Simulated scan of single mutants.
Amino acid sequence: MSGYDDSEHPVEPWGPHDWSHGAPHNSFSPIFMSMGIALFFFMMAQAWSFGTYTPGYIPGILLALAIVGFALFIWWRQDISFDGSYEPRSTGVPFKNIQIRKVAVWVFLMSEMMVFTSLFSTYMRYRLGIENCGDMYERLEASHELVSGATYTCFEPASHLIASSGWHLTPGAINTFALILSSFTIVQALRYAKMPDIDEEVRRRKVYRYLGSTWCLAVLFLTLKMVEWFIGFHVPEIGFLGISEHDIHPLVAEGYTINADAYTHHDYHDFIMNIQVSASLFYVTTGTHGAHVAGGIVGLSYMTYKAWRGGYTPTNAVSIEYFGLYWHFVDLVWVLVFPFFYLY
């Protein structure tokens, strides 16, 4: 029994909900979001299949994004009024008396751990199982078996190109600092949201500024990722440091791509490499992490808006805590990705 008359407190799936009388069980947002995400991945796989681009699937991709956006809009419209008056708890073992949303976040993070564990283990399997391009080059050159114009399949880690100079490594290093700093800002947002004896206007400003700072750092991360992959940057002359003017080319311009079957590097004279496996592992792993950052940006956009409206108080600050669990996980993954793929 619900204990109250539903006719007196109708549940509205399209807008703010009367949380004091229970959660809105009739929301269709999760179903629509799942359908949109599934359609998006299917269309993406069809549009870029085996290195071939098929523009006919772009409308399907846009439709999928529209479905996801619609579901998010409805979800956020329902959550915008959440004041913490209704936080359901689990009644079963082993999660008894723990908030259901917290349990869901931890279950989700456990599934994410399996995703990234698979990516890391695959990387190490091929990294150790396929001969390194540098070792192969030295072996063939020493034995005079290097054939001019021939293509050799080997493992060329992205770190050989990225860590070849401090400038190539700069975007990744800045990104590492940015994500670590973002973990601090999200904790500060939660800290001020939970403070019981603080002026509400001060709380509002502190929470939305710290959430906004986290959003900015996340956007900086993806921006530098695009610079590293596709754009590159110009280094001006700095005479007193002995730095000459030059351009840092992005990875794609350097030829480090997932379909690179004729890759060359200035360290190897007349040595043509097929590096599709190593490049694919780099882009899939770092791209998957980047997709998680992008998802965090979407969530932070809404949370910052809600904080700007003064929507977070000690009674509902747990929403920031739940997002913080996800965000700390994303940061931790990058702390592992950076040395594995950028330095090793």
Rank of each mutant, 00 (worst) to 15 (best):
D5F: 12
D6R: 03
E8D: 11
H9N: 11
V11L: 07
E12D: 15
P13L: 01
P13I: 08
W14D: 13
P16S: 12
P24S: 05
S27L: 14
P30K: 05
F32M: 14
G36K: 09
M43D: 13
T54D: 15
Y57E: 14
I74G: 10
D79Y: 07
I80M: 14
I80G: 06
D83W: 10
S85M: 00
Y86W: 09
P88C: 05
K96E: 12
Q99F: 06
I100P: 02
A104W: 07
W106K: 00
V107C: 00
L109V: 00
S111N: 13
L119V: 00
Y123R: 07
Y126D: 10
I130G: 05
E131S: 06
N132M: 06
N132E: 03
N132Y: 03
C133N: 01
G134S: 04
D135A: 13
L140E: 07
E145V: 01
C154T: 06
C154V: 06
F155E: 01
S159N: 08
H160D: 09
S164R: 03
S165M: 06
G166A: 04
P171L: 00
P171D: 07
I174C: 03
T176K: 07
L179H: 03
I180M: 03
S182W: 05
F184S: 05
Y192D: 02
Y192E: 08
E200G: 07
Y210D: 01
G212Y: 02
C216P: 11
L220C: 08
F221L: 05
L222H: 11
E228W: 10
E228P: 11
I238M: 15
H249G: 12
V252W: 15
A253N: 15
N259C: 14
N259I: 14
A260K: 09
Y263Q: 14
H266L: 13
H269M: 12
F271C: 06
N274E: 06
N274W: 04
T288L: 13
G290D: 09
G290C: 08
G290H: 01
A294I: 05
I297Q: 09
I297M: 08
L300Y: 12
K306Y: 05
A307K: 08
W308L: 12
W308K: 14
G311S: 09
Y312E: 05
T315Y: 02
F323L: 09
G324I: 04
G324E: 02
V337D: 03
F338M: 03
P339F: 02
F341D: 03
